[in-house]
Design a protein around this nucleic acid. Structure first.
Lengths: 187, 187
DNA sequence: CTGCATTTAGTATCTGGTACTAATATTAAT
DNA sequence: ATTAATATTAGTACCAGATACTAAATGCAG
Protein backbone atom coordinates (compact mmCIF):
# COMPACT_ATOMS: atom_id res chain seq x y z
CA UNK A 1 0.00 0.00 0.00
CA UNK A 2 2.89 2.31 -0.65
CA UNK A 3 3.77 4.36 -3.65
CA UNK A 4 6.53 6.71 -4.68
CA UNK A 5 7.38 7.30 -1.07
CA UNK A 6 4.14 8.47 0.49
CA UNK A 7 1.08 6.47 1.36
CA UNK A 8 -2.44 7.82 1.35
CA UNK A 9 -2.37 8.13 5.12
CA UNK A 10 0.85 10.09 5.14
CA UNK A 11 -0.39 12.37 2.44
CA UNK A 12 -3.64 13.02 4.24
CA UNK A 13 -2.09 13.85 7.58
CA UNK A 14 0.42 16.02 5.80
CA UNK A 15 -2.45 17.66 3.96
CA UNK A 16 -4.20 18.50 7.20
CA UNK A 17 -1.04 20.10 8.44
CA UNK A 18 -0.39 21.99 5.26
CA UNK A 19 -3.87 23.46 5.18
CA UNK A 20 -3.82 24.30 8.84
CA UNK A 21 -0.65 26.28 8.29
CA UNK A 22 -1.86 27.98 5.14
CA UNK A 23 -5.60 27.90 4.60
CA UNK A 24 -5.24 29.95 1.41
CA UNK A 25 -4.20 27.10 -0.87
CA UNK A 26 -6.39 25.95 -3.77
CA UNK A 27 -6.87 22.31 -4.62
CA UNK A 28 -4.76 22.88 -7.68
CA UNK A 29 -1.82 24.22 -5.70
CA UNK A 30 -2.13 21.35 -3.25
CA UNK A 31 -2.28 18.82 -6.06
CA UNK A 32 0.93 20.21 -7.48
CA UNK A 33 2.59 20.18 -4.08
CA UNK A 34 1.73 16.54 -3.43
CA UNK A 35 2.26 15.47 -7.05
CA UNK A 36 -1.21 14.01 -7.35
CA UNK A 37 -4.27 14.97 -9.32
CA UNK A 38 -6.74 17.60 -8.23
CA UNK A 39 -9.35 14.89 -7.83
CA UNK A 40 -7.23 13.06 -5.32
CA UNK A 41 -6.93 16.20 -3.24
CA UNK A 42 -10.68 16.57 -3.38
CA UNK A 43 -11.24 13.01 -2.29
CA UNK A 44 -8.81 13.57 0.54
CA UNK A 45 -10.57 16.73 1.63
CA UNK A 46 -13.86 14.89 1.50
CA UNK A 47 -12.56 12.08 3.69
CA UNK A 48 -10.98 14.49 6.14
CA UNK A 49 -13.95 16.82 5.90
CA UNK A 50 -11.80 19.82 5.16
CA UNK A 51 -13.98 22.53 3.64
CA UNK A 52 -13.17 24.15 0.32
CA UNK A 53 -10.84 27.10 -0.01
CA UNK A 54 -13.58 29.73 0.07
CA UNK A 55 -15.09 28.29 3.21
CA UNK A 56 -11.70 28.15 4.88
CA UNK A 57 -10.98 31.76 4.06
CA UNK A 58 -14.40 32.74 5.28
CA UNK A 59 -13.81 30.94 8.54
CA UNK A 60 -10.53 32.72 9.12
CA UNK A 61 -12.17 36.03 8.29
CA UNK A 62 -15.16 35.48 10.53
CA UNK A 63 -13.09 34.28 13.43
CA UNK A 64 -10.88 37.28 13.44
CA UNK A 65 -13.49 39.78 12.43
CA UNK A 66 -15.13 39.51 15.81
CA UNK A 67 -11.76 39.47 17.55
CA UNK A 68 -10.70 42.75 16.00
CA UNK A 69 -13.93 44.35 17.09
CA UNK A 70 -13.35 43.48 20.70
CA UNK A 71 -9.80 44.79 20.52
CA UNK A 72 -10.93 48.07 19.03
CA UNK A 73 -13.50 48.39 21.76
CA UNK A 74 -10.65 48.27 24.21
CA UNK A 75 -8.66 51.32 23.14
CA UNK A 76 -9.24 52.28 26.70
CA UNK A 77 -8.99 49.01 28.50
CA UNK A 78 -12.16 48.53 30.47
CA UNK A 79 -15.29 50.61 30.14
CA UNK A 80 -15.13 54.20 31.23
CA UNK A 81 -18.16 54.75 33.43
CA UNK A 82 -17.28 58.08 35.02
CA UNK A 83 -14.80 60.78 34.25
CA UNK A 84 -14.03 64.20 35.64
CA UNK A 85 -11.21 65.37 33.48
CA UNK A 86 -8.14 66.30 35.46
CA UNK A 87 -9.68 65.03 38.69
CA UNK A 88 -10.92 61.46 38.77
CA UNK A 89 -12.35 58.56 36.77
CA UNK A 90 -13.83 55.10 37.09
CA UNK A 91 -13.56 52.22 34.65
CA UNK A 92 -14.91 48.68 34.74
CA UNK A 93 -13.26 45.67 33.17
CA UNK A 94 -15.08 42.39 32.83
CA UNK A 95 -12.39 39.77 32.79
CA UNK A 96 -12.66 36.43 31.05
CA UNK A 97 -10.55 33.42 30.21
CA UNK A 98 -8.97 35.25 27.26
CA UNK A 99 -7.16 37.49 29.73
CA UNK A 100 -6.13 34.68 32.02
CA UNK A 101 -3.63 31.86 32.14
CA UNK A 102 -5.22 28.76 30.72
CA UNK A 103 -4.28 26.39 33.45
CA UNK A 104 -4.78 28.49 36.53
CA UNK A 105 -7.53 30.85 35.31
CA UNK A 106 -5.66 33.69 36.96
CA UNK A 107 -5.88 36.97 35.07
CA UNK A 108 -2.52 38.10 33.72
CA UNK A 109 -1.06 41.09 35.47
CA UNK A 110 -0.52 43.01 32.27
CA UNK A 111 -4.26 43.34 31.70
CA UNK A 112 -4.86 44.72 35.15
CA UNK A 113 -1.93 47.02 34.63
CA UNK A 114 -3.27 48.10 31.26
CA UNK A 115 -6.65 48.95 32.75
CA UNK A 116 -5.04 51.06 35.44
CA UNK A 117 -2.65 52.76 33.09
CA UNK A 118 -5.22 53.56 30.46
CA UNK A 119 -7.55 54.96 33.10
CA UNK A 120 -4.78 57.11 34.53
CA UNK A 121 -4.08 58.43 31.06
CA UNK A 122 -7.75 59.00 30.33
CA UNK A 123 -8.11 61.11 33.45
CA UNK A 124 -5.41 63.48 32.26
CA UNK A 125 -6.30 63.25 28.54
CA UNK A 126 -5.05 60.33 26.58
CA UNK A 127 -3.67 62.04 23.52
CA UNK A 128 -0.84 63.94 25.10
CA UNK A 129 0.06 62.18 28.31
CA UNK A 130 2.85 59.73 28.98
CA UNK A 131 3.74 57.46 31.78
CA UNK A 132 6.82 58.60 33.61
CA UNK A 133 6.96 56.43 36.69
CA UNK A 134 4.58 53.95 38.20
CA UNK A 135 4.70 52.25 41.52
CA UNK A 136 2.55 49.23 41.64
CA UNK A 137 1.28 46.55 43.95
CA UNK A 138 -0.81 43.55 43.15
CA UNK A 139 -2.56 42.71 46.37
CA UNK A 140 -4.21 39.42 45.46
CA UNK A 141 -4.80 37.36 42.34
CA UNK A 142 -7.75 38.02 40.06
CA UNK A 143 -9.64 35.16 38.46
CA UNK A 144 -11.27 35.09 35.06
CA UNK A 145 -14.84 36.31 35.38
CA UNK A 146 -14.10 38.85 38.10
CA UNK A 147 -15.37 42.35 37.44
CA UNK A 148 -12.64 44.88 38.04
CA UNK A 149 -13.60 48.36 39.15
CA UNK A 150 -10.78 50.85 38.80
CA UNK A 151 -10.83 54.26 40.46
CA UNK A 152 -8.33 56.91 39.55
CA UNK A 153 -7.66 60.10 41.44
CA UNK A 154 -5.33 62.90 40.58
CA UNK A 155 -3.40 63.51 43.80
CA UNK A 156 -1.61 66.62 42.75
CA UNK A 157 -0.07 68.37 39.78
CA UNK A 158 3.29 70.06 39.56
CA UNK A 159 4.01 71.90 36.37
CA UNK A 160 3.26 69.44 33.58
CA UNK A 161 3.50 66.46 35.92
CA UNK A 162 0.45 64.68 37.23
CA UNK A 163 0.40 62.24 40.12
CA UNK A 164 -2.46 59.81 39.78
CA UNK A 165 -3.41 57.01 42.14
CA UNK A 166 -5.35 54.09 40.78
CA UNK A 167 -7.08 51.47 42.89
CA UNK A 168 -8.72 48.39 41.49
CA UNK A 169 -11.21 46.31 43.36
CA UNK A 170 -12.83 42.97 42.61
CA UNK A 171 -15.73 42.02 44.84
CA UNK A 172 -15.01 44.75 47.40
CA UNK A 173 -11.45 43.49 47.85
CA UNK A 174 -8.59 45.63 46.66
CA UNK A 175 -6.53 43.70 44.15
CA UNK A 176 -4.29 46.41 42.81
CA UNK A 177 -2.98 49.84 43.61
CA UNK A 178 -0.53 51.99 41.75
CA UNK A 179 0.79 55.51 41.45
CA UNK A 180 1.18 56.85 37.97
CA UNK A 181 3.23 59.89 37.24
CA UNK A 182 2.19 61.35 33.96
CA UNK A 183 3.88 64.05 31.99
CA UNK A 184 1.86 66.19 29.67
CA UNK A 185 3.53 67.38 26.50
CA UNK A 186 1.12 69.96 25.10
CA UNK A 187 1.95 73.36 26.50
CA UNK B 1 -32.37 63.28 -9.81
CA UNK B 2 -34.21 61.74 -6.94
CA UNK B 3 -36.31 58.62 -6.68
CA UNK B 4 -38.37 56.86 -4.09
CA UNK B 5 -36.51 58.62 -1.34
CA UNK B 6 -32.83 57.97 -1.95
CA UNK B 7 -30.54 59.44 -4.56
CA UNK B 8 -27.64 57.61 -6.10
CA UNK B 9 -25.22 59.50 -3.93
CA UNK B 10 -27.03 58.64 -0.74
CA UNK B 11 -27.27 55.02 -1.73
CA UNK B 12 -23.59 54.83 -2.54
CA UNK B 13 -22.36 56.39 0.67
CA UNK B 14 -24.77 54.19 2.55
CA UNK B 15 -23.44 51.23 0.59
CA UNK B 16 -19.87 52.02 1.59
CA UNK B 17 -20.94 52.13 5.19
CA UNK B 18 -22.97 48.96 4.97
CA UNK B 19 -20.12 47.00 3.45
CA UNK B 20 -17.58 48.43 5.84
CA UNK B 21 -19.72 47.25 8.71
CA UNK B 22 -20.43 43.85 7.20
CA UNK B 23 -18.09 42.78 4.42
CA UNK B 24 -19.87 39.45 4.15
CA UNK B 25 -22.84 40.65 2.08
CA UNK B 26 -23.40 39.43 -1.48
CA UNK B 27 -24.54 41.76 -4.25
CA UNK B 28 -27.87 40.03 -4.18
CA UNK B 29 -28.38 40.72 -0.49
CA UNK B 30 -27.32 44.31 -0.97
CA UNK B 31 -29.66 44.72 -3.93
CA UNK B 32 -32.53 43.50 -1.83
CA UNK B 33 -31.59 45.79 1.02
CA UNK B 34 -31.48 48.87 -1.18
CA UNK B 35 -34.44 47.80 -3.31
CA UNK B 36 -32.49 48.04 -6.54
CA UNK B 37 -31.28 45.52 -9.06
CA UNK B 38 -28.12 43.51 -8.66
CA UNK B 39 -26.65 45.34 -11.62
CA UNK B 40 -27.06 48.68 -9.91
CA UNK B 41 -25.16 47.41 -6.92
CA UNK B 42 -22.42 46.20 -9.23
CA UNK B 43 -22.22 49.55 -10.97
CA UNK B 44 -22.03 51.20 -7.59
CA UNK B 45 -19.25 48.92 -6.42
CA UNK B 46 -17.42 49.62 -9.66
CA UNK B 47 -17.68 53.37 -9.19
CA UNK B 48 -16.65 53.17 -5.58
CA UNK B 49 -14.05 50.53 -6.38
CA UNK B 50 -15.31 48.18 -3.74
CA UNK B 51 -14.02 44.68 -4.49
CA UNK B 52 -16.31 41.70 -4.79
CA UNK B 53 -17.44 39.65 -1.83
CA UNK B 54 -14.74 37.03 -2.12
CA UNK B 55 -12.01 39.61 -2.30
CA UNK B 56 -13.42 41.43 0.70
CA UNK B 57 -13.56 38.26 2.75
CA UNK B 58 -10.06 37.37 1.66
CA UNK B 59 -8.80 40.78 2.73
CA UNK B 60 -10.33 40.45 6.16
CA UNK B 61 -8.88 36.97 6.49
CA UNK B 62 -5.41 37.95 5.35
CA UNK B 63 -5.28 41.04 7.48
CA UNK B 64 -6.13 39.18 10.61
CA UNK B 65 -4.28 36.05 9.76
CA UNK B 66 -0.96 37.86 9.97
CA UNK B 67 -2.15 39.75 13.03
CA UNK B 68 -2.96 36.55 14.84
CA UNK B 69 0.42 35.16 13.94
CA UNK B 70 2.26 38.12 15.34
CA UNK B 71 0.22 37.95 18.50
CA UNK B 72 0.97 34.29 18.88
CA UNK B 73 4.61 35.07 18.27
CA UNK B 74 4.38 37.44 21.20
CA UNK B 75 3.15 34.99 23.77
CA UNK B 76 6.39 36.04 25.29
CA UNK B 77 6.63 39.70 24.52
CA UNK B 78 10.00 40.38 22.99
CA UNK B 79 12.40 37.78 21.73
CA UNK B 80 13.94 35.43 24.23
CA UNK B 81 17.67 35.42 23.50
CA UNK B 82 18.97 33.72 26.61
CA UNK B 83 17.41 31.67 29.34
CA UNK B 84 18.68 29.78 32.33
CA UNK B 85 15.56 28.34 33.81
CA UNK B 86 15.09 29.34 37.42
CA UNK B 87 18.05 31.71 37.30
CA UNK B 88 18.07 34.38 34.63
CA UNK B 89 16.96 35.39 31.17
CA UNK B 90 17.31 38.06 28.53
CA UNK B 91 14.76 39.23 26.00
CA UNK B 92 14.87 41.86 23.31
CA UNK B 93 11.92 43.89 22.11
CA UNK B 94 12.15 46.00 18.99
CA UNK B 95 9.67 48.79 19.48
CA UNK B 96 7.82 50.56 16.70
CA UNK B 97 5.09 53.08 16.22
CA UNK B 98 2.42 50.43 16.78
CA UNK B 99 3.45 50.30 20.43
CA UNK B 100 3.65 54.05 20.85
CA UNK B 101 1.39 57.03 21.20
CA UNK B 102 0.74 58.46 17.78
CA UNK B 103 1.45 62.06 18.57
CA UNK B 104 4.43 61.77 20.86
CA UNK B 105 5.99 58.57 19.55
CA UNK B 106 6.55 57.51 23.14
CA UNK B 107 6.17 53.80 23.73
CA UNK B 108 3.23 52.96 25.96
CA UNK B 109 4.19 51.75 29.39
CA UNK B 110 2.04 48.66 29.17
CA UNK B 111 4.27 47.19 26.46
CA UNK B 112 7.40 47.70 28.48
CA UNK B 113 5.63 46.23 31.44
CA UNK B 114 4.43 43.28 29.39
CA UNK B 115 7.96 42.55 28.21
CA UNK B 116 9.25 42.60 31.75
CA UNK B 117 6.40 40.56 33.12
CA UNK B 118 6.52 37.90 30.43
CA UNK B 119 10.27 37.57 30.83
CA UNK B 120 9.91 37.20 34.59
CA UNK B 121 7.35 34.47 34.03
CA UNK B 122 9.47 32.75 31.39
CA UNK B 123 12.40 32.55 33.77
CA UNK B 124 10.31 30.63 36.27
CA UNK B 125 8.31 28.67 33.68
CA UNK B 126 5.34 30.33 32.10
CA UNK B 127 2.75 27.63 32.43
CA UNK B 128 2.39 27.55 36.16
CA UNK B 129 3.54 30.89 37.47
CA UNK B 130 1.50 33.91 38.50
CA UNK B 131 2.31 37.44 39.35
CA UNK B 132 1.76 38.19 42.99
CA UNK B 133 3.30 41.58 43.48
CA UNK B 134 5.32 43.88 41.31
CA UNK B 135 7.15 47.04 42.19
CA UNK B 136 7.96 49.07 39.18
CA UNK B 137 9.77 52.19 38.09
CA UNK B 138 9.91 53.75 34.69
CA UNK B 139 13.14 55.70 34.65
CA UNK B 140 12.84 57.54 31.34
CA UNK B 141 10.57 57.49 28.30
CA UNK B 142 11.14 55.05 25.45
CA UNK B 143 10.63 56.13 21.88
CA UNK B 144 9.36 54.05 18.99
CA UNK B 145 12.28 52.36 17.32
CA UNK B 146 14.29 51.86 20.49
CA UNK B 147 15.52 48.35 21.08
CA UNK B 148 14.69 47.22 24.57
CA UNK B 149 16.96 44.72 26.26
CA UNK B 150 15.42 43.15 29.33
CA UNK B 151 17.42 41.20 31.88
CA UNK B 152 15.74 39.13 34.52
CA UNK B 153 17.37 37.62 37.57
CA UNK B 154 15.88 35.43 40.20
CA UNK B 155 16.95 37.05 43.46
CA UNK B 156 15.76 34.36 45.78
CA UNK B 157 13.06 31.75 46.26
CA UNK B 158 11.05 31.02 49.36
CA UNK B 159 8.80 28.02 49.20
CA UNK B 160 6.78 28.44 46.03
CA UNK B 161 7.52 32.16 45.83
CA UNK B 162 10.06 33.58 43.46
CA UNK B 163 11.52 37.08 43.62
CA UNK B 164 12.63 38.24 40.21
CA UNK B 165 14.23 41.54 39.30
CA UNK B 166 13.87 42.77 35.75
CA UNK B 167 15.88 45.63 34.28
CA UNK B 168 15.28 47.05 30.85
CA UNK B 169 17.78 49.15 28.98
CA UNK B 170 17.53 51.12 25.76
CA UNK B 171 20.81 52.39 24.35
CA UNK B 172 22.74 51.61 27.53
CA UNK B 173 20.35 53.74 29.59
CA UNK B 174 18.11 52.03 32.10
CA UNK B 175 14.50 52.78 31.29
CA UNK B 176 12.73 50.38 33.58
CA UNK B 177 13.23 48.29 36.65
CA UNK B 178 10.78 46.15 38.52
CA UNK B 179 10.54 43.42 41.11
CA UNK B 180 8.18 40.59 40.34
CA UNK B 181 7.01 38.19 42.96
CA UNK B 182 5.80 35.05 41.33
CA UNK B 183 3.92 32.20 42.88
CA UNK B 184 4.23 28.76 41.41
CA UNK B 185 1.20 26.50 41.59
CA UNK B 186 2.50 23.10 40.55
CA UNK B 187 3.69 21.20 43.56
C1' DC C 1 -4.52 -13.86 -12.02
C1' DT C 2 -8.03 -11.88 -9.49
C1' DG C 3 -10.02 -8.48 -6.68
C1' DC C 4 -10.23 -4.44 -4.12
C1' DA C 5 -8.31 0.12 -3.00
C1' DT C 6 -6.53 4.02 -4.97
C1' DT C 7 -6.03 7.34 -8.29
C1' DT C 8 -7.20 9.85 -12.32
C1' DA C 9 -10.38 11.66 -15.84
C1' DG C 10 -14.36 13.83 -17.45
C1' DT C 11 -18.90 15.93 -17.44
C1' DA C 12 -22.71 18.61 -15.47
C1' DT C 13 -23.83 21.96 -12.14
C1' DC C 14 -23.37 25.74 -8.56
C1' DT C 15 -22.09 30.46 -6.58
C1' DG C 16 -20.78 34.88 -6.95
C1' DG C 17 -18.98 37.20 -9.42
C1' DT C 18 -16.59 40.27 -14.20
C1' DA C 19 -17.11 42.34 -18.73
C1' DC C 20 -19.79 43.90 -21.97
C1' DT C 21 -23.95 45.43 -24.73
C1' DA C 22 -28.35 47.12 -25.00
C1' DA C 23 -32.72 48.59 -23.64
C1' DT C 24 -35.55 51.21 -20.60
C1' DA C 25 -36.75 54.52 -17.10
C1' DT C 26 -36.18 59.06 -14.79
C1' DT C 27 -35.37 63.65 -14.62
C1' DA C 28 -33.51 68.32 -15.69
C1' DA C 29 -33.25 71.71 -18.78
C1' DT C 30 -34.77 74.09 -22.86
C1' DA D 1 -43.77 68.80 -24.61
C1' DT D 2 -39.30 67.45 -26.47
C1' DT D 3 -34.78 66.37 -25.97
C1' DA D 4 -30.52 65.08 -23.85
C1' DA D 5 -28.15 63.39 -20.05
C1' DT D 6 -28.23 60.29 -16.18
C1' DA D 7 -29.62 56.19 -13.84
C1' DT D 8 -31.30 51.78 -13.79
C1' DT D 9 -32.35 47.27 -15.39
C1' DA D 10 -31.78 43.19 -18.38
C1' DG D 11 -29.31 39.80 -20.63
C1' DT D 12 -25.41 37.22 -22.47
C1' DA D 13 -20.78 35.17 -22.32
C1' DC D 14 -17.26 33.97 -19.36
C1' DC D 15 -14.28 32.82 -15.05
C1' DA D 16 -12.54 30.54 -10.59
C1' DG D 17 -13.05 27.17 -7.56
C1' DA D 18 -15.49 24.39 -6.32
C1' DT D 19 -19.45 19.95 -5.66
C1' DA D 20 -21.54 15.70 -7.32
C1' DC D 21 -21.37 12.03 -9.93
C1' DT D 22 -19.78 8.34 -13.26
C1' DA D 23 -16.32 5.78 -15.20
C1' DA D 24 -11.90 4.28 -16.41
C1' DA D 25 -7.07 3.23 -15.30
C1' DT D 26 -3.49 1.75 -12.11
C1' DG D 27 -1.61 -0.32 -8.30
C1' DC D 28 -0.50 -4.06 -5.41
C1' DA D 29 -1.43 -7.90 -2.24
C1' DG D 30 -2.92 -12.46 -1.60
Amino acid sequence: MKQKGVSKKDRQSSLLDKIRKDPFLTDEELAEFFCVSVQTIRLDRLELSIPELRERIKNVAEENHTKVKSLQGKEIIGELVDLELGKSGISILETDHALAFEKTNVVKGQHIFAQAESLAIAVIDASVALIGVANIKYKSPVFAGDKLVAKAEVQRTRGNKYFVWVFIKAKQAEVFRGKFILVSFNK
